[in-house]
């Protein structure tokens, strides 16, 4: 076996060392944020915190947890993420199948695929989009967080490329048995595509969890904000250059430690879900088949 050779063992040691170094490099900022969230306010404001908390305090977490708006926004985020991912998966899965066919089999394929690609590149801008959302009655509706993001051309393209990797023989066998396209899609394609579905689910989840701008623009009531929007509104500093300032306000704005706590809590769910999904799709892949 190759991994028993001396050369490979030496390589392996260096390789792991190098990868660990990269991994550490990546988490330094997050540790910094974590350290700030557990530090006292005065130390954080003076930028004295490095990678370890200064004057340890859990005050920031208490404040965050006592904020009902924060907790509520987590629920809304979970709801939109679950629903949004489900809708995206269903629509993407369905759309990718015909698009993965050859032009000779599905003659309108070119038209459809350009329809998708074109939509990815051109957009009308914020104002017309807002007008459409308004005419559809989606302003101030929870569904505005779910529906407009349903089709992501990038995901459709990923999915259809996964489909193309599925051996033709499988499909042909099914069709000979008299199965229609729908049956083929759900009986044959679905079971072997779990890993790719997991990948797409992950992309979609991350997208929904981190989206904030839609909530801000299309929801009229800040109590309905998802977490990312909520975080955005508390963390981002205001453009203060032209505002009349008073010490009371500045005191409230500089909530360095509370912000850090919220950033951390906000990233937590994805951090927890990710390793789980990762294992799931690596496992599922072994069922997967060779490409081309």
């Amino acid at each position: 076996m190759y991994y028993k050779s001396l050369g490979y063992r030496v390589f392996n040691v260096f390789n792991i060392g190098f990868l660990i170094f990269l991994a550490v490099l990546c988490i330094v900022p997050l540790i910094h944020v974590l350290a700030i969230s557990f530090s006292s306010k005065a130390a954080a404001d003076a930028s004295l915190v490095g990678l370890w908390p200064v004057e340890f305090s859990i005050e920031a977490y208490k404040k965050t947890m006592n904020n009902p708006a924060f907790l509520r926004s987590i629920l809304i985020s979970v709801a939109r993420t679950v629903l949004g991912t489900a809708v995206t998966l269903a629509v993407t899965f369905l759309a990718a199948y015909p698009l993965s066919k050859d032009n000779s089999v599905f003659r309108s394929r070119s038209f459809y695929s350009w329809l998708f690609v074109f939509s990815m590149i051109f957009n009308g801008g914020l104002v017309p989009f807002y007008i459409v959302i308004q005419k559809l009655g989606l302003i101030n509706s929870f569904w505005v967080l779910v529906l407009p993001a349903t089709v992501n051309t990038f995901l459709v393209i990923l999915m259809l490329n996964f489909f193309r990797g599925i051996p033709k023989e499988l499909e042909e066998a099914a069709l000979i048995d008299g199965a229609g396209h729908f049956k083929t899609l759900f009986r044959i394609y679905l079971p072997v595509s779990l890993p790719s579905i997991a990948t797409i689910a992950l992309f979609s989840m991350v997208f929904h969890w981190n989206s904030w701008f839609d909530g801000l623009l299309y929801l009229n009531d800040s109590r309905d904000f998802p977490l990312a929007t909520f975080l955005q509104t508390v963390i981002i500093q205001r453009d203060m250059s032209s505002m009349s300032m008073s010490p009371q306000e500045m005191e409230l704005i500089s909530q360095t430690t509370v912000n850090a706590a919220q950033i951390f809590i906000g990233a937590l769910p994805i951090l927890l879900v990710y390793p789980f999904l990762q294992r799931f799709f690596v496992k599922g892949m072994t069922l997967g088949s060779v490409k081309e």
Binding site: N140, L216, N220, S222, F225, T233
Partner: peptide, 8 residues
């Protein structure tokens, strides 16, 4: 009519 948290 509507309200929005004013950031950015």
């Amino acid at each position: 009519l509507w309200s929005i948290t004013d950031t950015n």
